[in-house]
Nucleic acid binder design. Structure first.
Lengths: 194, 194, 194, 194
DNA sequence: AATGAATGAGGGTTCATTCAT
DNA sequence: AATGAATGAACCCTCATTCAT
């Protein structure tokens, strides 16, 4: 007996997947459980996604996109000072992670932890940071021998690792202290020309 | 036909597991495959390890131990200058990762389901770095407002993320450039008192 | 190639299980064999029963229920004379066992691992018999020092043991002789010389 | 490194098997566990018994033999009165079951419950009881239409079922009440109001 | 006689995926 | 689009049994 759906089935599946992935970990969740939680039949799952990992990828793509948008918006209102921009960007990331902890964890955490920056999904994020470093080098405000791509990747690995650790137990540090540490360790600031 | 083994079955299983985990990823490897590659029967696997993840954990524990030992040895011969010590430690890590790429990837790399980045395996490694930072703070050579535990974790996330990325394609940067970047981004050096 | 079944899969599994349990014994039957005999895939088995013993329990519950119903029906048409009632009940049990030999054996027979004779399946059956004895005692027609629960259990152990033995080789005694023996040994009547 | 044993290995294996069978049930015990508990190597098990069930059978044979001996001894001192003999025999069985609860359960109980009297191990026990009934019939003291073999089997099924139930929770009835019930339900005597 | 590491067939169970409705 | 019973390959793990020592 087919039931017409008012809500979008795809959104329901994404929400169900996110919640289950975050709760149990990707490997402990199966398509049947996702469909059940979305109050849809398994078959419907496969009408929308080729398989479980496609759903995961979609969650990650959306999360990365939303995080980037949050960063862009925050940076835009931060003036031209590099430190202010870095602080705005890091602050946006921390706020985003706090507001969307499940999505952040599913996208960057656990089963992909450590190598958080691996894979096509995430490597995209590296570019804006690297470009920012390149601009600073061009302006003579950053050591020109620093490899911008490498430094960008290093920073993002750090940011992700730190935020995931903080999400596990936010009482460990205040949010501001966390942001301040990220700022201080940012290649654009910490590794000034000496 | 049961054949008593002269070679240690456990070592054979660890080697087989390491090789398969690195090649196919932990989730795509089963105990039968590990036993087969060790030229042992499945039952023998279970004589030595309670399950697949116990084997993985053993690999990780050994790897973390060996990496720490390499770091300690390198640091010991590096004098008292913080920068020289950091360079020695980072250099040892990079060299270790290069020499034991499989073990490094299996221990720190992506899909380490269950044994998360935040698990005991990694948090152990954090302590020496944090202690080093504390010593520098005590000596007035590092901003005392920096949270040493947070900074240590941040550095290690960065080191791991960077090295994993480099291992994927070592042609991206020279080994020395990599080490130099790690040094510059180290909290003990980059985030000096300003 | 998944084929939706018109016939009820659960019934097919119950029938297949009954036949195999009776033929080979519970411990020598596995879920794959049951599914195969029901011409279903193993997975379908687990869609309907959590495991092999749940299927067994279901068979037993149904058998005990059907046996009790047969007893009740037979007793109802037997008037008020205790001996006639006992004879009707025992006769119903023997007839039931003859008509559903496999179910009887699987439910009451030897290796019912886990679901012991002393389990809820059987103790349920004890109550009507014990209640009957209590009524006779209240009416002054049975030794009041006899423990009705104990006597009921004793009788049922006897009935089951005797019927199982008879089922193994029905040529050993005529059905009527069997019933007559059960009647004479029933606690409510006794095997006195008449 | 072979260790010479002072105690008889076979006895140790029998004791270990008995204890484990009683504790976990025959199907949940394996030869490795039995050998371990007997502080012997698995290989030694197979030097003494062809397999697990041979050990079980040996336990049962010994138990049945010992129980029969206890019965014979008790009956011998009970004079010639049928009721006294029956009481002595039943009393001996109950005492034996109490003193060797594990052996009694493993031999008659659980996985073989209900059909307790099945199998070559136990059917032997039927003969003395049947012979006693035949003697009573020859002496004109028991209904000659009663089938002695059937009645004997019925009585023993009852005795076993009742004793197993009692062993599960001896507080249910006093030992004497149990024996008295067995006596009253014995085919040779009957449970009539006296 | 005793040892015990090694064996590997076999059993229980899961779950991504299909397809007739 | 939606359904969900059915599928069956594949996995994890156990354990009776062997045999070189």
């Amino acid at each position: 007996m087919p039931r017409p759906r008012i809500e979008d089935a795809e959104d329901r599946l994404l929400a169900a997947g996110l919640s289950l992935f975050a709760r149990r970990g990707v490997e402990r969740v199966n398509t049947n459980a996702i469909a059940k939680r979305a109050r849809l039949a398994v078959g419907t799952f496969y009408k929308h996604f080729p398989d479980k990992h496609a759903l995961l990828r979609e969650i990650q793509v959306r999360t990365v996109g939303a995080l980037r948008a949050a960063r862009v918006a925050a940076t835009r209102g931060a003036g031209t000072d590099p430190e202010a921009q870095v602080r705005a960007s890091a602050g946006a990331a921390v706020e985003f992670a706090e507001a969307h902890a499940q999505a952040y964890r599913v996208t960057f955490g656990r089963e992909r932890a450590g190598a958080a920056m691996h894979g096509p999904v995430v490597s995209e994020s590296t570019r804006p940071t690297a470009d920012g470093l390149r601009r600073l080098q061009a302006a003579g405000r950053l050591d020109p021998t620093l490899d911008p791509d490498l430094a960008a990747r290093a920073y993002l690995a750090m940011e992700v690792g730190t935020i995931l650790w903080w999400l596990d137990d936010p009482s460990r540090t205040g949010r501001d202290g966390l942001v301040e540490t990220l700022v201080r360790l940012h290649p654009a600031l910490g590794a000034r020309i000496r």
